[in-house]
């Protein structure tokens, strides 16, 4: 075959659409909007009552918050490795990385559960004060997203083990992974805002 007749590969310009299904990205944007409003509400509520927020923040378990950041970041890294492996047709490796992501998510839920238990034992609830109203509702809203993210990861794990995804069919795993990274992204803002900033 005359080499000149082989068409030059198209220049790899920027992809027009993000990885995964477009629908998941609209969902992610809606979630980010909700969390963004929540974060701003927290910050402005603090501005109205700095002394209360700064005092109450000292009663939070910052070690647990930091450990949970490490768990979510590591979970996100595991899922990114899973997508990379499946993209090279290594489903078995991808499935193992997904399991790693599930383990990190489970670790997050355990740590957060211990944190909640300590607070409830201390008699703290939504009506304790404005700070705890925000702390409990904001972190619980995020907690529910971690649970949904784990359900998605388990579903991806089952399908990846069956070899349902591969270099030619990345849509499902990329969509689920994007959601999981969103849960991580939100915590990356939440941890310094609620646990550290004063």
């Amino acid at each position: 075959m005359d080499p000149a007749s082989v068409p030059a590969p198209a220049s790899p310009g920027p992809a027009t659409a993000p990885p995964g299904d477009l629908a998941i990205w609209f969902f992610i944007l809606a979630e980010l909007l909700a969390f963004g409003v929540f974060f701003a509400a927290y910050a402005f509520a603090r501005a109205l009552n700095v002394a209360l927020f700064d005092t109450m923040q000292q009663t939070l378990d910052r070690q647990a918050g930091a450990l949970n950041t490490v768990l979510l970041i590591s979970g996100s890294a595991c899922v990114a490795r899973a997508v990379e492996a499946v993209g090279r047709a290594r489903s078995a490796t991808g499935a193992r990385w997904l399991l790693g992501g599930v383990a990190c998510g489970a670790g997050f839920l355990v740590v957060k559960g211990i944190e909640y238990a300590a607070k409830f034992e201390a008699g703290i609830n939504l009506s304790t004060n404005t700070f705890y109203m925000f702390y409990l509702s904001l972190t619980f809203f995020h907690f529910m997203h971690v649970i949904l993210g784990m359900v998605i990861l388990v579903a991806l794990w089952v399908k990846t083990r069956q070899g349902a995804y591969g270099p030619a069919d990345m849509n499902g795993i990329e969509s689920g992974a994007a959601y999981w990274h969103m849960v991580d992204l939100v915590w990356i803002v939440l941890f310094p805002l609620v646990y550290v900033m004063r």
Binding site: P12, P14, A17, P18, A80, V83, H181, M182, D184
Partner: peptide, 15 residues
């Protein structure tokens, strides 16, 4: 996380 984990680094600026 957005660029490398979510994989938006090579995607159109809009996203």
């Amino acid at each position: 996380v957005v660029l490398d984990f979510m994989g938006l680094r090579g995607v159109k600026f809009f996203w």
